[in-house]
Deep mutational scan, measured.
Amino acid sequence: MQIFVKTLTGKTITLEVEPSDTIENVKAKIQDKEGIPPDQQRSIFAGKQLEDGRTLSDYNIQKESTLHLVLR
């Protein structure tokens, strides 16, 4: 499925993911596309910070959902 990741600069990245993917996985995909190390990424969805060990389905993130990426 496709999800979108919006950065603070307003750029939107499209990722191909599975509901079973962990947040860690997703951060690795963002690193592949953007070169941002996962330890600098904070992902926010529906106002909640997403934890690395959880999966997209844990957070009820579905296709075409938009995550927000904040850098630390």
Results as ranks from 00 to 15, higher is better:
residue 20 S to G: 11
residue 30 I to Y: 04
residue 60 N to A: 07
residue 49 Q to C: 13
residue 24 E to P: 03
residue 40 Q to G: 11
residue 60 N to F: 06
residue 35 G to H: 07
residue 15 L to C: 02
residue 22 T to H: 01
residue 34 E to R: 05
residue 55 T to F: 05
residue 47 G to F: 05
residue 6 K to N: 05
residue 26 V to P: 01
residue 9 T to N: 12
residue 66 T to M: 08
residue 19 P to W: 07
residue 48 K to F: 11
residue 42 R to C: 15
residue 49 Q to D: 14
residue 61 I to S: 02
residue 36 I to M: 08
residue 51 E to H: 09
residue 8 L to F: 13
residue 43 S to E: 10
residue 52 D to S: 06
residue 45 F to Q: 04
residue 14 T to D: 02
residue 26 V to R: 02
residue 43 S to C: 15
residue 51 E to Q: 09
residue 63 K to Q: 13
residue 52 D to T: 05
residue 16 E to F: 13
residue 20 S to L: 08
residue 39 D to A: 10
residue 17 V to T: 00
residue 7 T to A: 04
residue 10 G to S: 02
residue 15 L to I: 11
residue 45 F to L: 05
residue 21 D to F: 06
residue 58 D to T: 04
residue 6 K to V: 15
residue 62 Q to D: 07
residue 3 I to G: 02
residue 32 D to E: 13
residue 14 T to I: 12
residue 36 I to G: 09
residue 28 A to V: 11
residue 14 T to A: 09
residue 29 K to A: 08
residue 54 R to Y: 13
residue 7 T to Y: 11
residue 34 E to P: 04
residue 10 G to N: 06
residue 9 T to C: 13
residue 13 I to A: 02
residue 68 H to C: 09
residue 65 S to R: 00
residue 33 K to M: 13
residue 28 A to M: 14
residue 70 V to P: 03
residue 46 A to E: 14
residue 52 D to H: 04
residue 30 I to F: 11
residue 25 N to E: 12
residue 25 N to H: 12
residue 60 N to W: 05
residue 4 F to I: 04
residue 30 I to A: 06
residue 54 R to P: 04
residue 48 K to D: 07
residue 66 T to A: 03
residue 14 T to W: 06
residue 48 K to V: 14
residue 23 I to E: 04
residue 47 G to P: 03
residue 50 L to Y: 02
residue 69 L to T: 02
residue 16 E to G: 04
residue 26 V to L: 13
residue 50 L to C: 03
residue 30 I to Q: 00
residue 22 T to F: 05
residue 5 V to S: 00
residue 38 P to W: 15
residue 43 S to H: 15
residue 7 T to E: 05
residue 14 T to N: 05
residue 20 S to Y: 09
residue 19 P to I: 09
residue 40 Q to Y: 09
residue 35 G to Y: 04
residue 19 P to L: 09
residue 6 K to A: 07
residue 61 I to W: 00
residue 21 D to L: 04
residue 45 F to D: 04
residue 24 E to S: 12
residue 9 T to L: 08
residue 66 T to C: 05
residue 62 Q to M: 10
residue 46 A to P: 02
residue 12 T to L: 13
residue 3 I to V: 05
residue 11 K to Q: 09
residue 35 G to V: 04
residue 31 Q to P: 04
residue 57 S to P: 01
residue 59 Y to I: 02
residue 31 Q to H: 13
residue 70 V to R: 07
residue 61 I to T: 01
residue 3 I to H: 01
residue 50 L to I: 04
residue 1 M to Q: 00
residue 58 D to H: 12
residue 20 S to T: 13
residue 70 V to G: 05
residue 1 M to K: 00
residue 14 T to C: 06
residue 64 E to R: 07
residue 34 E to I: 15
residue 28 A to E: 10
residue 20 S to Q: 10
residue 24 E to Y: 14
residue 53 G to V: 07
residue 41 Q to G: 05
residue 30 I to S: 03
residue 17 V to Q: 00
residue 11 K to T: 09
residue 18 E to R: 14
residue 2 Q to W: 12
residue 1 M to D: 01
residue 23 I to W: 10
residue 4 F to P: 00
residue 59 Y to K: 00
residue 10 G to V: 01
residue 71 L to D: 07
residue 12 T to H: 05
residue 8 L to V: 12
residue 9 T to P: 03
residue 63 K to N: 15
residue 36 I to T: 08
residue 67 L to Y: 01
residue 5 V to R: 00
residue 70 V to C: 07
residue 3 I to Y: 00
residue 20 S to V: 04
residue 62 Q to T: 13
residue 18 E to W: 12
residue 24 E to N: 08
residue 58 D to W: 12
residue 36 I to A: 08
residue 15 L to Y: 02
residue 38 P to S: 14
residue 35 G to A: 05
residue 22 T to Y: 05
residue 8 L to N: 13
residue 63 K to F: 06
residue 25 N to M: 15
residue 61 I to E: 02
residue 39 D to T: 09
residue 47 G to L: 08
residue 50 L to W: 04
residue 56 L to W: 00
residue 18 E to Y: 14
residue 23 I to R: 01
residue 4 F to V: 04
residue 12 T to E: 04
residue 60 N to T: 04
residue 21 D to R: 01
residue 29 K to R: 09
residue 11 K to D: 07
residue 21 D to T: 08
residue 14 T to Y: 06
residue 8 L to A: 13
residue 4 F to T: 05
residue 26 V to K: 01
residue 37 P to V: 08
residue 20 S to C: 07
residue 29 K to I: 06
residue 8 L to T: 13
residue 58 D to G: 02
residue 41 Q to H: 09
residue 16 E to C: 12
residue 38 P to T: 15
residue 38 P to N: 08
residue 44 I to V: 11
residue 67 L to A: 00
residue 13 I to E: 02
residue 39 D to F: 10
residue 49 Q to E: 15
residue 48 K to I: 14
residue 42 R to P: 12
residue 29 K to V: 04
residue 48 K to Q: 13
residue 33 K to R: 10
residue 51 E to N: 06
residue 24 E to A: 14
residue 9 T to F: 12
residue 66 T to K: 03
residue 69 L to I: 10
residue 57 S to E: 11
residue 42 R to H: 15
residue 72 R to K: 13
residue 47 G to C: 09
residue 65 S to L: 02
residue 39 D to S: 13
residue 49 Q to R: 11
residue 60 N to Q: 08
residue 34 E to T: 15
residue 23 I to Y: 04
residue 51 E to S: 06
residue 1 M to Y: 14
residue 38 P to R: 13
residue 70 V to K: 07
residue 63 K to R: 11
residue 42 R to L: 15
residue 10 G to C: 07
residue 15 L to W: 00
residue 53 G to P: 04
residue 56 L to C: 02
residue 50 L to V: 04
residue 28 A to K: 15
